[in-house]
């Protein structure tokens, strides 16, 4: 069964600009999918639609066979009730370009607050799990620090730990290293790579071509709100499609 299924998704913003034009996408358990494409092509919007941070206008959104959104007779999407949506939200985690850590919580609290409040884990258990995650991500010595005291790379690793603490079935990353200084992207990429090794299901929007090539089972090339090409890294990087070759070439030479 597909973990995530998006069928014929359409999304416009006020003003009528159609940002996602009939996109379909399936992700199986354990799959790592990268989305690449020029700026403004709708990559973030697609990811945000999957995470219910944006409402889709038309199409189906399905998690583990459960329909979260479906079309009514006028091909307008209707969503499940908000209490059911809350259950679906537990299936995924989201890592933002700008981290969005909670500045008033220290590192450990950032990681364990949601497990305690949302999953209702006992404090001891949540703490044990949070400390193990911080250890895994090399942040043990920072557990009492506040986000403003950390480097960008450390902050992003905390935000990954925060997402992992909820035991998500799938993780979404929206340009996880774009806000980082070049010398800090490596540490975050390494963490994502080790998650890929453990067969964590992930969708990653990225502009880092070598990174996408290394970790993805499948790469999706998006342009103007559509999936223009999709395939294994070998297929995408060896494509005869002029447009994609040019795009990849330009980013690699940067």
């Amino acid at each position: 069964m597909n973990l995530l299924e998006m069928n014929h998704i359409k999304k416009s913003f006020e003003g009528g600009l159609e940002v996602i034009k009939d996109i379909s996408l399936c992700v199986k358990e354990g799959e790592v999918v990268s989305i690449i494409g020029p700026s403004g092509s709708g990559k973030s919007t697609l990811l945000r639609c999957a995470a219910m941070l944006e409402k889709i206008d038309s199409g189906e959104l399905i998690y583990l066979g459960q329909k979260v959104a479906w079309n009514d007779s006028h091909f307008k999407s209707v969503y499940m009730s908000s209490s059911d949506k809350k259950k679906i939200e537990k299936y995924y985690g989201f890592v933002f370009q700008n981290f969005h850590l909670f500045p008033h919580f220290n590192v450990l609290k950032n990681v364990i607050d949601a497990p305690e409040r949302v999953l209702k884990l006992p404090k001891k258990e949540a703490e044990k799990k949070g400390l193990a995650l911080l250890e895994q991500l090399g942040l043990s010595d920072k557990k009492d620090a506040y986000p403003y005291q950390l480097s960008g790379g450390q902050q992003q690793r905390v935000s990954i730990a925060r997402a992992l603490a909820m035991d998500p079935k799938i993780l979404f990353f929206d340009e996880p290293t774009s806000a980082l200084d070049p010398e800090l992207t490596g540490e975050v990429q390494k963490v994502i790579q080790s998650l890929a090794k453990e067969r964590m299901t992930m969708i990653i929007v990225t502009h880092e071509m070598q990174f996408a090539r290394k970790i993805s089972d499948r790469i999706i090339f998006m342009e103007r709100g559509k999936i223009q090409a999709e395939g294994t890294p070998e297929v995408i990087f060896g494509t005869g499609n002029e447009r994609i070759r040019e795009f990849i070439g330009r980013l690699q030479n940067e």
Binding site: L53, E89, Y92, F94, F96, H100, A114, R117, V118
Partner: peptide, 21 residues
């Protein structure tokens, strides 16, 4: 910043928890 609301939402906090915590 809207990001604080969005981070809370994807972590599953409800509206009251998001506001209060």
């Amino acid at each position: 910043p809207i990001g604080q609301y969005e981070a809370a939402k994807v972590l599953g906090y409800n509206k009251v928890q998001t506001f209060v915590r």
